[in-house]
Design a protein around this nucleic acid. Structure first.
Lengths: 228, 228
DNA sequence: CCAAAAGTGTTGCTTGTACACCCATGT
DNA sequence: ACATGGGTGTACAAGCAACACTTTTGG
């Protein structure tokens, strides 16, 4: 092995914490679990873990996501690196937050239960350890930015969904009411949704058309009204 | 000293790389320097350094900025953490990119020269080591996002500036022409600029009013036309 | 028939864009 | 007097928010 030319510098523990978003019951939720080890054992915590030498931060986030939900091929995005030297009382750990979008009904409930993980609405979170609350806040901002420009849907809803489903999802993400008529017109005007012809009758007697996202439809803008 | 409960995990080198933006001659520029040590000695590189145990990533970025430009109290923002295990051929280094905005004429030229650092236009960058080009690209995107909502001016131009100065700065940041009349109206409508009454005659015979940013003027939107 | 969700249409207002035009002044 | 940047005005189009209205159908 070649010599380490950086040896005179200090190394640091580097961790990844995942803000796992799910959508259920018209609410945007985050998966957290009671930490199983000291410090702060038993307090609510994001799902996280240390980074291995041979993996990227994204790899680590994927690994953690897989270990706790059993899911692969999940949309995830880096949020921010948190580095207060005293953020973890047990040692200097630099942690990079990621957020991920999953379909709650697709998770491995066995695995999730095994970890004791629970879904909490973003609007009503429990107390969390360290700076995890800050991580969630920043992650939500990132999610909102993305939802403004990219039409988030399949990641949280499934492959097909009604326009009302989508509207409620956006209301959950932005914590604000959206005018149904205007939302529908705007979303359809993007040309990124394909009407499958199928109807979903579970939410109404009339039934609502199920739509599918057409992949690779470029950037969209301004899905959410500024002042409703 | 208390025992290290995380000892079974690997530590990593953590560095910070600074994308230092400046504005000169209607061009947005980045400060880079020829790397003074192996690997890749002599190749162009961002200004960076390793993180110390007792400082945050932001602290490290500030330290590097001060050491190379002599400046303090500089606006800076985290961009992204880069973590490909092989990004640095000499070892596993996780590097967090920051961008900073400075006034080129305010730098300590002596210090800068000492480092051999040079300003390169973002539109015409030299080859850079590792993933530094990627860092600049991402940093520019972040800068553009910020410029859309926050009215960047003083950071790069100085405390007072004419509306034409500001327009040219925005053209440099977004690499696109902006209609002078519309830009001026929009910027003024934000109510965040204060006309000092003074005129700058260096750019025209008529002279242009010098404006000052009124601090804490909340968020602004849409400073740049979408399709001019 | 009616409640309730799905879906369409209309209207007024704000904003953006393009572009024409006047202003001030050093040379 | 005129070229040059500074600064204002206007006219049209597009986008948006608000809200009234129609459609469908199970109970």
């Amino acid at each position: 092995m070649k010599q380490d030319i950086y040896h005179k510098y200090e190394k640091h523990y580097v961790a990844v914490d995942c803000v796992i978003f799910g959508y259920e019951n018209t609410e945007l939720k985050v998966l957290v679990y009671p930490r199983g080890f000291e410090p702060s054992r038993g307090k609510w915590s994001l799902l996280g873990g240390f980074v291995n030498p041979d993996e990227t931060l994204g790899d680590a986030a994927r690994r953690i996501l897989f270990n706790t939900t059993g899911l692969v091929n999940i949309f995830q995005q880096q949020v921010h690196a948190f580095s207060r030297p005293d953020r973890d009382p047990a040692g200097r750990v630099i942690s990079v937050a990621y957020y991920a979008l999953i379909r709650i009904n697709q998770q491995d409930t066995e695995l999730v239960r095994e970890h004791g993980a629970q879904w909490w609405p973003v609007s009503n979170l429990p107390d969390l350890i360290f700076d995890h609350r800050e991580m969630i806040d920043k992650a939500l901002l990132r999610l909102q930015e993305r939802a403004e420009t990219e039409l988030i849907g399949p990641e949280l809803l499934g492959d097909v969904f009604t326009l009302t489903n989508l509207k409620k999802l956006y209301e959950a993400i932005f914590q604000r009411d959206i005018d149904a008529g205007n939302f529908r017109k705007k979303v359809l005007s993007l040309g990124a949704l394909h009407n499958t012809g199928e109807k979903d009758k579970s939410e109404s007697k009339k039934g609502a058309y199920l739509y599918q996202l057409i992949p690779d439809q470029g950037l969209k803008v301004g899905l959410v009204p500024t002042n409703p």
